[in-house]
């Protein structure tokens, strides 16, 4: 099986802090989705990304924020195992980011030969 990375992109929302109940519900949605992938034996690893970020450009130019020029930010990623990219896209259909107007970018991971 090959490995694919799903990158979760969304627009940073400026709405007030979610309530603990909303947070709990959101965590459950994500964990149920990831748990479902893991139950198929296709889970590799995952991480959430925070809101800190800096971008380095040629000429040692450093800009603040992950979303200096684009509207979207990357909220996190998951790495899964599947036979082809179509299967990985199928796994992505349940991703909770889709319910808040975000989208998932599915990329194949190039193996680095050592």
């Amino acid at each position: 099986m090959k490995e694919f990375m799903m990158i979760f992109r969304h627009e940073p929302n400026n709405s007030p802090q979610p309530s603990p109940e909303q947070m709990q519900a959101s965590i459950k949605q994500w964990q149920d989705w990831i748990g479902g992938i893991a139950a198929q034996g296709k889970f590799v690893s995952t991480n959430r990304l925070g809101f800190q970020g800096k971008t380095l450009k040629p000429g040692n130019v450093v800009t603040d924020g992950p979303y200096a020029e684009v509207k979207e930010i990357v909220g996190g990623y998951i790495i899964v195992k599947s036979d082809a990219i179509e299967d990985a896209v199928e796994l992505a259909t349940g991703c909770p980011i889709l319910q808040v107007g975000g989208h998932v970018e599915v990329r194949d991971i190039m193996e680095i030969k050592k």
């Binding site: 459950k28 964990q31 149920d32 990831i34 748990g35 893991a38 139950a39 198929q40 034996g41 889970f43 995952t46």
Partner: peptide, 24 residues
């Protein structure tokens, strides 16, 4: 269910996958 979600991320096993589905 949530504990099985985490457990499967640490280590997959068929039994855990079935039990997780039962809890689901």
């Amino acid at each position: 269910l949530q504990l099985y979600n985490y457990l499967l991320q640490i280590e997959y096993s068929p039994v855990a996958a079935l039990n997780r589905t039962y809890a689901l």
